[in-house]
Design a protein around this nucleic acid. Structure first.
Length: 387
RNA sequence: GUGGCUGUAGCUCAAUGGCAGAGUACCUGACUGUGGAUCAGGGUGUUGCGGGUUCAAAUCCCGUCAGCCACC
């Protein structure tokens, strides 16, 4: 069954539509992270006004607090959190990885301690699906094991096997017909294990395929090599989701390779840390050099923050720890990412994505020190992809 | 007016004759399926000022200025 309608393709880049119980999502799409069902420092209306169609919530966090059963009693996450758009929930597999000290992975599932109160919990693949259905997610993710970098071949192989067994159990546990369930490809940075993982998941026929365990400390060129290794084998009519990425340059690169969906904490977390995106790269609003800067963050940006405030005032708000700083910065960064995705879709639609890609590479300066590194890696990966 | 106490980084304060330090603030960097969190790096100084003693003074002596307290 068709889970994404591919409207047009430009090279490997795809323009498409994913239809969920809460509307249509044009792809390629960037999903802002809203762990608690809401994007930090914003209100749902702000995102709706910008044209955001889908956010990413987190089953692990919502399970611990306020509890998935409570959310179900309150009518589901959409009603509870006042969000009409689509919601994708991450299963908590990544939290098991990132909160590693507290966890124990067994065949049955994961035992872990709450980071909130230290209480012990057990999450199985079945439980994770139940939690996401209670929450009322439009797109659910399987429980997976995200292995650190570097990990041995033997450990990674066993981990892929476990992730596949868990994926099958997730698939069998799923009841809700109106929700999709995505499988997550693991395999660390061993091409044959990535292929094995992808093939085993495809045999189970998920609604979409995610690439997990990326950007965990490995060189970017290796990460893109893994994407190249498996993406060609994915079915055309299923969404492809690169989990946890990334910076604008990562997204442009991913789209070029055929990725449809992205999520990342960067635009929102960086906003709260004063790091703001412009069409040339990133600036940090806390820097003293902006103390009398009357210009907006980006004079080409159409967001409320840029239309209303100077860098000088935004710096003042940030330095003063004024709450509005987090709001205004977040609004800007999400608007920036959304505009980037609109531009990308427009380019694919017009068959000019390659030109867009080249122009982006030429003008984009990434972050401060991160710049050269990212662009160099991106270029290498780009050549590989072009062959 | 007399006596006493205090004066060191933007702020609060350490260092009792031996390389002028801490917390905070500030400056800089990191952050990739979110802790507005956190982590890493940086000392930014006429030790109120001017003399003196000493191999060596924030430290001891003299003078002076400022703030505070007590007493005329």
């Amino acid at each position: 069954m068709k889970k994404i309608e591919v409207l047009t393709e430009d090279g490997c880049a795809r323009l498409g539509i994913i239809r969920t119980a809460h509307g249509e999502i044009q792809t390629p799409v960037f999903m802002p992270v809203g762990t608690q069902g809401i994007v930090k420092a914003t209100a749902p209306k702000d995102l709706q006004d910008m044209g955001i169609k889908v956010i990413l919530a987190n089953a692990y966090h919502l399970y611990l607090r306020p509890g998935d059963n409570l959310i179900r009693e309150m009518g589901g996450i959409h009603k509870f959190a006042g969000w009409d758009g689509s919601v994708l929930t991450d299963s908590g597999g990544y939290q098991v990885f990132s909160l590693g000290v507290l966890r124990q992975i067994k065949e049955e599932g994961v035992v872990f301690q709450s980071h909130i109160d230290g209480s012990r919990h057990f999450l199985s693949p079945e439980k994770v699906v139940e939690v996401q259905e209670n929450i009322g997610a439009d797109i659910c993710m399987c429980l997976d094991e995200c292995v650190p970098y570097p990990s041995s071949h033997a450990y990674t192989r066993d981990s892929v096997d476990l992730t596949s067994r868990w994926a099958r159990r997730c698939k069998e546990a799923k009841k809700a017909d109106d929700a999709m369930l995505f499988g997550i490809v693991q395999g660390g940075f061993y091409p044959e294990l990535r292929i094995k993982s992808a093939q085993e998941l495809m045999e189970m026929d998920f609604d979409g395929y995610a690439l997990g365990g990326m950007s965990v400390g490995e060189p970017k060129s290796i990460m893109w090599e893994m994407v190249d290794t498996v993406i060609g084998s994915f079915p055309r009519e299923k969404p492809r989701y690169l989990m946890g990425l990334g910076f604008p340059e990562d997204i442009v690169e991913g789209v070029r390779k055929g990725i449809d969906m992205f999520d990342c904490v960067i635009p929102t977390r960086h906003a709260r840390n004063g790091s703001l995106f412009t069409r040339d790269g990133r600036i940090n609003i806390k820097h003293a050099k902006y103390v009398k800067d009357e210009s907006p963050i980006d004079d080409m940006c159409g967001c409320y923050t840029c239309k209303t405030f100077s860098r000088a005032y935004l710096r003042h708000l940030f330095v003063s720890h004024e709450l509005s700083s987090y709001y205004l910065n977040t609004i800007h960064n999400i608007y920036f990412y959304n505009s980037l995705m609109e531009d990308i879709r427009k380019a694919i639609q017009g068959g000019t994505f390659e030109a867009f890609y080249d122009a982006f590479k030429k003008t984009w300066k990434g972050g401060e020190l991160q710049d050269e590194h990212s662009i160099r890696d991106g270029s290498d990966a780009g050549r590989t992809g072009g062959r």
